[in-house]
Design a protein around this nucleic acid. Structure first.
Lengths: 170, 170
DNA sequence: CCCCGATAGTAAGATGATCTAATAATCAGA
DNA sequence: TCTGATTATTAGATCATCTTACTATCGGGG
């Protein structure tokens, strides 16, 4: 925790100097964004998957965890791709042992896409430690600081979403 | 600012209730991520560009602002694509009026890729107001809160980057 | 001064993920 | 029971990327 500096390409941050200017914060946010993107690229590479397929798999795992069944059309809506593309996407997931097609109990037009235990293990092994580090970090914050961070993230989300309201009435 | 709730698909947040749990914060971070991704998709759609081309253009604008010339090979390195792909990428940017190829002053093997004023205006018009809202938000924070947020972002970045150290010695 | 390895951009052809349009099966309500 | 809506699939096209091969240029060591 006593590391002097993170020296990403753009945006330095010295944890000792108390003064974090406004642009510092925005640069840190951008730096986090880029670190997360790089992390996704690594995960993708280590699992030999493309971005969409990985997002699909994570969605499958999340929904399974929540006890909800996922049909191909749900994937299409969540990922904003056509059902035709989902067909080939699920083909890939099944071919590579990440998911299975199972019959839907009541609707014979559709199916249920289920992640395999193997894929669950693999994602957990890859993302688990990182997730744990994140949890630890936030856990270490005081109640007050957590609220500060929560308000910040909520506000940033609103700032980003507001663009949708004004620019595109469609 | 007295809005009751942001109700994204996953992760609710009530700004009034003081208790933001650890998982709340992580959900808010994920929600911000997804809002930002959606914003990028809107920008891309409104400018009729794909993700890589938009990232390239933003890089060109940023570097120009910093007074640095950008060669095709710089784009290749920054975007992690081959120089062959950069050739076609710059072809697209030039075709659509977003950039120009200019001769390099000293090295005749290469060129300089310059963003057009038009593209500058367009990006500024699209992203400017959002950026302003973000600045205002962070500006509104107290010195102390800004430091809290900065430490949080710095820590999260470290948590995400640490995966690279352990998992992939390559 | 000139060669030669390194660097830069481009062309050609292949691959992979997406799209649209058309089709077939099934559902659910009038 | 028909009929319109929903769902998945196939076929064919498009688009961005890749690898490989090639050409032009640079810059340093004989």
């Amino acid at each position: 925790m006593a590391l002097p500096t993170h020296d990403a390409a753009s945006g330095y941050w010295y944890p000792d100097s108390e003064g974090a200017s406004t642009v510092d914060v925005l640069n840190l946010l951008r730096r986090y964004r880029s670190a997360e993107t790089a992390m996704r690229a690594r995960t993708r590479a280590s699992m030999r998957m493309n971005e969409t397929d990985l997002m699909a798999l994570r969605y499958l795992l999340r929904e399974q965890h929540a006890g909800r069944a996922v049909r191909p059309v749900d994937l299409a809506r969540h990922l904003h791709i056509s059902t035709a593309s989902v067909t080939t996407l699920v083909d890939r997931l099944v071919r590579d042992g990440h998911a299975l097609r199972e019959p839907h109990p009541t609707d014979r037009r559709t199916q249920i896409v289920v992640p395999t235990k193997h894929s669950d293990d693999e994602v957990r092994a890859t993302l688990g430690p990182m997730h744990q580090r994140m949890l630890n970090l936030v856990d270490g914050l005081s109640e007050h600081d957590r609220a500060v961070v929560a308000r910040f993230l909520d506000g940033m989300t609103a700032a980003v979403e507001e663009a949708a309201v004004h620019d595109k009435p469609e």
